[in-house]
Every structure is written in structure tokens, then in C-alpha cells.
Amino acid sequence: MGRLAFLLIFGLSGAAILIGLGVWQVQRLAWKEGVLAEIDSRIAADPVGLPATFEPDADRYLPVAVTGEMLGQELHVLVSVKRVGAGYRVIAPFETETGRRVMVDRGFVPTDAKNTARMLGAMDVTGNLHWPREIDSYTPEPDVAGNTWFARDVPAMADALGTEPVLIVAKSQTDPSVTPLPVDTSGIPNDHLEYAITWFSLALIWVAMTAYFLWRSRARTES
């Protein structure tokens, strides 16, 4: 009986821990969905004018509308778009009607349109402020000679283009040949449901294995 009691306690304790982890992930899922809903609401809000100063954490995703002039110098960020393939994000300097210089992520062009001339001059741009977190220890340094970047490094790009360190990701089209890639929450990971399913599945397997060992131990005791 001592062995059976040990197996029962061990099995129930392990199952309780695994179920607890699953419940925690369900709670995290509800929290993350709330965060994503709040970000979606912020992204879709009515645009405002360009703030006088910027705070990357507080102003991330802020919708803005600016009027001014799209300038000619561009930086190209290598990306891949689902069902389209490889291409580039076009990052260009934009001078507002008040004389401020910021960057605009105009959107996506295929690889063969990398150096195609695009519309410049006076235009209105609607989009969202963004400071992407795309740099990690594996990100290659930009190929300056080939004008190819591998992530949107806002401070470094601002230095290269001579602008304020702020990026407007365009929602409006700034050129017929450029497809806008507006900000959304699709790139924010939300794997809590998968984690919850994993923990609950492990709990079920743990219970089944515990029942099996209990059955075998009891059968041996009675034989």
C-alpha cells in the first residue's frame, strides 16, 4: 500500500502542477488578447498631427497625418511578404510643411523595383508612428554600398537620412508602385493558447501514465 500511496500522491501532484500551468497560460491568453485589442484600437484611431516630441513607448502606433514633401533619398529594407515573396520596404525622408524632417515607411516593392523612380514632392501621408524592435544579435550590418538594410533600425536610419529618429509607417498610398504595409498586431507573438494546450495535454498524459502504473503495481501486489 505504501508504493500505491506514493504513486498516487506523485501522480496527482504532477497533474496538479501541469493543470496549474495550463490555467496560467489561459489567464495569460486573456491578458494578451486584451493588450492586442487595445493596440488595434489605438492603430485604428483618428489620426492627429505630428507631436512636438516623441516617446517611443508612449507614442508607438500613434496615428498621425502629415502634409509636406517626400524627398528622394531612400533606404531599402529586405523583407518577405506572404504569397508575394522577397522585396524591400522603402524608407524615405519626408519634410513637413513646418520644416521638420522625419522618415516614412512607404511600403513594399518587389526586388526588381528596388531602384525604380518613385513619386516625390508635395503629398499628404497618413500612418502610424513606429519604433520597430527588429534588431538582435543575429541581424547583419547594413550593406551601405548596395543600400540594403536587414531591419528597420530607426536611430541608424535617421542618422543616414538626416532626420529625426521617428518613423511613420504609411497607411495611405504614396506611389502607385508601392504597396503600403501598415502596422498591425499580426507580428506580435501570442502563443499562449498553444502553450495551454500543451500543458493540459501533458497533464492528461501524466494522469493516464499514473493510472497505468497504479494498475500495474496493484496487479503485482495481488498476484
Rank of each mutant, 00 (worst) to 15 (best):
L29F: 01
V178L: 15
R42H: 15
D124L: 01
A15I: 08
F200N: 10
R118I: 10
W215H: 14
V207S: 08
A208W: 10
T53V: 04
Y88K: 12
I188R: 03
I43M: 03
G72W: 00
G20F: 10
I19Q: 12
Y138N: 11
D46Y: 06
G72M: 05
T111K: 09
R152M: 11
L193H: 04
S80H: 09
A30G: 00
D46I: 02
L36E: 03
S137A: 11
R216V: 07
A208K: 02
R133V: 06
L120T: 02
N190M: 03
L129R: 10
N128M: 05
S177V: 15
E194N: 10
A117N: 02
D40G: 11
D159H: 11
R133P: 00
G127L: 00
D40Q: 15
H192C: 04
S201E: 04
M70I: 10
R218E: 06
I188P: 02
Q73C: 00
L193F: 12
S186Q: 09
T96L: 11
T67F: 11
G107C: 03
V125M: 04
V23I: 15
T163H: 07
L62F: 02
F108L: 12
P182Q: 12
R218D: 05
E222D: 13
L36D: 01
Y88P: 00
P189A: 10
E55P: 00
E69R: 13
E74T: 09
Q173E: 12
S201C: 08
T98V: 10
A86R: 15
H130F: 10
E194Q: 15
P165N: 08
G34F: 05
L4C: 07
L62N: 02
